[in-house]
Design a protein around this nucleic acid. Structure first.
Lengths: 130, 130
DNA sequence: TATGTGTTATAGTTGAAGTATAACAACAAA
DNA sequence: TTTGTTGTTATACTTCAACTATAACACATA
């Protein structure tokens, strides 16, 4: 599979799995309706326990990224959506604010912060373009 | 002091301290050269152990936010700056990218993501304004 | 019936987070 | 000199998250 794990990282394995599945959805590498490996299959593939993979899948389900059918397995949701949209947007805004505050506190110029955001997001600055 | 801690949070106490000091610097509530409470003083104030506060201070020092003098205590750096600027910028960009990827994967429209970033940062969209 | 899903239960190891005490080194002030 | 304050270090302990290991269960399908 497409996963690359770092067992030395301070980021828990189940979080690394979660993050990369999310990246896969965002980059269209994982399409709606597509099935993920079973918990046992993925666990065996990456050399971790069944429960570690299961934890990642449970969180992805709770967050609205995937749906889980008892026999069909774990599928990318047709239209991924957070259960509490307003709450999610508030939270996302807070996380943006924390990143920006940290950069500001370290003397990074607003122009550069904006530039990093644009590069990271692929968005154009101006509303005139896509 | 200005700290508000949540002992029920999954975010470690030393991280909460760190985050709020950073916010204080970014918001100018904490000025360069200003001194923070001593480890014992702050620990007693918020009802935690000396080592928990010390851990937060050590990290803030390693990240370039504060300087620590053995007797003068902990001071906000005159010009806070990450020890490895290039590495920090790369990391910041990755963190932006992860937030954006997550929002995209959840079907949040680019316009709304951009709007949240603008609101969170206080920046204007266009380069024409400050 | 056999196999492959996710799910649940139990028990154990490892390491981070936090606490509790104590002591040390360095400087400032009484 | 003595006292007090600073950060620092050391040790030991508790609690809990992360992860592992095994086993069993419920459900659907081939």
């Amino acid at each position: 599979m497409f996963l690359s794990l770092d067992f030395e990282s301070e980021v828990p394995i189940y979080q690394q799995i979660r993050l990369q599945v999310i990246q896969g959805i965002a980059s269209r590498a994982l399409a709606p309706g597509e099935s993920l490996p079973s918990v046992r299959q993925l666990a065996s593939e990456i050399g971790v326990n069944l429960h570690t993979v299961n934890k990642a899948y449970q969180i992805l389900r709770d967050e609205g990224f995937v749906v889980i059918h008892r026999q069909r397995g774990v599928l990318i949701a047709e239209h991924p959506c957070p259960p509490d949209l307003a709450g999610y947007l508030d939270d996302l805004k807070s996380r943006f604010a924390q990143l920006v505050a940290e950069a500001k506190a370290l003397g990074i110029k607003p122009d550069q912060i904006r530039k990093l955001f644009v590069e990271a997001s692929g968005f154009r600055l101006q509303a005139s373009d896509s």
